[in-house]
Design a protein around this nucleic acid. Structure first.
Lengths: 129, 129
DNA sequence: GATTTATATGATTAAATAACTATATATTCG
DNA sequence: CGAATATATAGTTATTTAATCATATAAATC
């Protein structure tokens, strides 16, 4: 039995009616947090559970300082949580809904690309016909 | 009967395993597109159907040039679609999954804020007790 | 065809920020 | 205590980009 998340059209209606400008600012910040490939790589790594900074550094091949800054930023914004054990520091994704959102956006992007592809193919067919 | 979208844990697992670096770049671009308050305001306006540029300008109170640029950017990326009728140009949201993602992210942000609030309240209670 | 209206586009400026280098902190072990 | 290891943090630089102003296109109306 798999955990699922369901969003209804009413939920979305609520979004559009209840969202004041100030809230949109906060939401846009969260989107900005997810708008860096490096941070998405980190999140992809953290998808299967907690990892140390070093493990992440090795996985995504970037400098330790860079990874630390990205982790600090995401931690400040509550996207990842931290647990210290001796010298090591374990990071994990705070809330799965972030990953769900990543999935949704990816899906949307792929659908866009497919739509364009089918147009190109139509044009291509009519040109080679 | 309401339209719903459902995401399972398996979907998310797929995300994390199938997502190559190049795809993460594309996904991060989509997130970047949603990381501007002004563009979220535009999308909030477009939630209830298509609107002309002027209608949007009036709704979000920004300059026409600014709105036009944001709309052009979102159109280039397939987030909004366009329909011209005489002098007027009607924009609409191409794919509802964008709005679903906005809802998910908003939900996540609100949950974060609530968690913090409950901590603050605990501390506050213990200090005033 | 000239004017008005709706939208788009170029150029400029100011602000945000990712990556890098160097350094600091903090914990473990000898 | 001193050395080694793991992580965090300043400071700098280069790049990106949102907003603005001015102008261009393009359709409708007189």
């Amino acid at each position: 039995m798999s955990k699922t998340i369901t969003i209804s059209e009413e939920d979305v209606k609520k979004w559009h009616f209840n969202m004041p400008d100030e809230m949109l600012e906060v939401v846009s910040n969260r989107f900005k947090l997810l708008s860096e490939p490096m941070r998405l790589k980190i999140l992809r790594t953290l998808c299967d559970g907690e990892h140390t900074v070093q493990e992440i550094v090795n996985e995504v091949s970037a400098s330790q300082a860079n990874i630390s800054k990205h982790l600090a930023l995401m931690h400040d914004n509550g996207v990842v949580s931290r647990r210290k054990e001796g010298l090591k520091c374990y990071y994990r994704i705070t809330d799965d809904s972030i990953v769900y959102a990543c999935f949704l956006i990816s899906k949307s992007v792929v659908e866009n690309l497919q739509d364009r592809l089918s147009w190109i193919q139509k044009v291509n067919n009519s040109m080679t016909a």
